[in-house]
Write a protein that binds this DNA or RNA. Structure first.
Lengths: 405, 405
DNA sequence: GCGAGATTCTTCAGTTACTAAACAAAGAAA
DNA sequence: TTTCTTTGTTTAGTAACTGAAGAATCTCGC
């Protein structure tokens, strides 16, 4: 029985590193048991990681009858990653360490109507300022993650301008990876990050692996159908969550209420609002938290719909954990959270006694930027296998005509 | 750049075998391109597969300027698998070849109230009869797949009684694997099998890998919420698809209609029906297909709800293909299919021009049994990696108390 | 019909990343 | 102290790759 034992990762090094990250603190024997590799392999792999400076021995466990185990930990300040979130309103930059903790953070006004080239130049400058502000050597920075509605517009240029490897993703998926990396959930967990900014989405992690879907559209809870005969949605469907209870729908309803519009201080009148949806939604949330009953009712109605969509998502994927994140949940999470908890407790308490945990992200507001950095950490440190090539290649490769023997 | 190149499978042998299966017919050069392995590796692996009798050279491709490629195919009759579907009403047995094609099939009355031991003895006897009816050597039978509501009740005993390795699963997942194996969908495809028997479910395959969920409950579309304020469901939720439009709901509505009850020949009156739901549902479907307008209206209403749930599932997972399968779709599929197609065309035609394909399974009626056999084929021939161990082990293994150095 | 070139497939030495097992080191128990 | 248990390291052996050279088989031009 020799030969390599296969693990989920591209390399054993990555697998071991991920186990150390997920466990927080673990011994070599712990790694042997968790990985299925033998002591000898763990010994050499760990030595390599220590030589690279990624891992450090940080103490001893109590003896279990013999030699005490030496505990290993990620050296959180061995490497760093930059995360950038480009928004309608703002650009948020974070520098995180290996543990996904924010080391530095700056936020600047958005690049509303600037030229792409100018935006790239500006972002590169501000990333430089971010790094210099804490005096980290460039060599220790693994890369830059960029999250925005249309990241591919800037990706390649930003890489050239900063000299850093760039990875791109959408906000909800980034947020999910951020939660996963920061260790709030287990190594092989199945969970989703419900994301609310100016719209609703979900990042999906199944058994520790991100599921983006072949078109990158997985987690589109904004278009979950919650009413077969509901109002039409631009997507072509009817009764979509987004139309019934998304941030834009909440804002639109609030604007129909003169008293609430005034109380929440929503700008403009009947005219199309110039302020971003997320800003107006935040104003309504603040009014609700300050006791405005009509704002609260509006948000609780939205929460019931989001809860129904969350229940549906859990049924679809058999999720263990749901994390609420994103700027809008950062403000309104305290209103949505109890509604979601109640709905999911009711629907899953009976079923085999495996309750679904619902949490509010502790860093919901900057989740996209932190998540962007986490994607860098994951892709550089713990690359997963690519799997086999696409069937397109396969089909293209094989001549279509053949003769029987 | 030496050393093993990682693929998605437990072994290169399995990866290559799966590529040959997925392609149907492919050359060694095709395998080199599709797998990323080198020619030398493919050569030796393929020789091994030919020696085992699993693969055969079946012809030549046309020349592309030099030596013609030798085409390889699975030898479909090299191995077999048994699939058993245990139902309220019937037990269905199939023997399939490597291609997932049915070689023999028998169906017997269900084991309503027999002792588990007697049921196992009887199943073992009938499996024996199935195998003998085509005279296949036992050594060529890879194993037995068992699909039922509570397969674990029989699993181990059935293995002992038949002398075959036994794998267990639920109906919807089995049906999905059956579709995948039979090659209706690509090798790394992301799709779901919508299953309708006496209830509704979905088997989910993401990027070629089955997603069952940590509790095995993934694909629970029966409890998708389609109406936030809808009628309560035993599951604890409100407005679940199952309650609004599942087979049992359709049958219940039909029974409220005296004329339809008579026209469809539904047994019983106001009393609780003794016939299985699927049987009554089939009767209603037949009436609809014979032109009964009220039966048709009832089913089309159900179909609109199922279509909304399907749309939601596609949004959740970014699916490429949906396959309708299971006994109830075998009969009513022609009514549901156009409704689903229209809904999904409308909702996804705009979005980046990637339409969702919706198909009716050609063998919907015996899909669970065929799927059960396909699971055997997959698990014995193409085992996927197990991944890392569970975090439970990891936590249990590490002493919770430790001292800092 | 006969090289020349192209392409496919095989062979084989070399490399990598593992395993198994012996060994060393460190603490507990007696 | 001695002995036992447990942890971690070292070493030899092996499976499964890669890369490169070579053999086999086809097409094409003349």
């Amino acid at each position: 029985m020799s030969g390599p034992a296969r693990v989920t990762h591209a390399s054993t090094r990555a697998a071991v590193l991920d186990l150390i990250r997920a466990a927080g603190m673990i011994s070599r024997v712990g790694l042997v048991n968790a990985s299925g590799l033998t002591g000898g392999t763990i010994s050499t792999v760990v030595r390599g990681l220590i030589d690279e400076g990624l891992v450090a021995e940080t103490g001893h466990a109590e003896s279990t009858g013999g030699k005490r185990r030496v505990l290993l930990q990620l050296d959180h300040f061995a490497r760093y990653a930059v995360g950038v979130h480009l928004d309608d309103a703002r650009i948020t930059y974070v520098l995180t360490n290996l543990g996904g903790a924010v080391v530095a953070r700056i936020s600047r006004a958005g690049a509303a109507s600037e030229e792409p080239a100018a935006v790239v130049a500006r972002m590169a400058r501000e990333v430089g300022a971010l790094i210099d502000s804490v005096g980290v050597e460039r060599g220790r920075i693994l890369g830059l993650g960029l999250v925005s509605a249309r990241p591919w517009q800037f990706g390649a240029d930003l890489g050239r301008a900063t000299g850093l490897p760039v990875v791109l993703d959408n906000d909800a998926t980034a947020a999910a990876i951020g939660e996963h990396w920061s260790g709030g959930v287990g190594a092989t967990s199945t969970f989703a990050a419900l994301y609310m900014g100016s719209d609703l989405g979900a990042g999906v992690v199944l058994g520790g692996t991100t599921h983006r879907g072949p078109g990158g559209h997985a987690g589109g809870i904004g278009h979950f159908c919650l009413d077969v005969d509901g109002p039409p949605c631009p997507c072509g469907g009817r009764g979509c969550l987004e139309v019934l209870a998304g941030p834009a729908a909440v804002v639109a309803r609030a604007r129909e209420d003169r008293a609430l519009t005034r109380a929440a201080g929503l700008p403009g009148g009947r005219t199309r609002p110039a302020t971003p949806v997320a800003t107006d939604f935040a104003a309504i949330s603040r009014a609700a938290r300050q006791g405005n009953a009509r704002a609260l009712a509006l948000l609780e109605r939205s929460a019931r719909h989001v809860a129904a969509a969350a229940r549906t998502l859990v049924h679809a994927l058999d999720l263990e954990v749901l994390v609420l994140t994103g700027p809008s949940f950062a403000i309104a999470g305290s209103i949505y959270l109890p509604v979601l908890r109640e709905e999911l407790d009711r629907a899953f308490a009976s079923r085999g006694a495996r309750p679904v945990a619902v949490r509010l992200s502790p860093s919901a507001a900057s989740a996209p930027a932190i998540g962007a950095a986490a994607i860098v950490l994951q892709s550089e440190l713990v690359p997963r296998h690519q799997g086999l090539r696409l069937p397109d290649d396969l089909a293209a490769d094989e001549p279509p005509v053949f003769q029987r023997a």
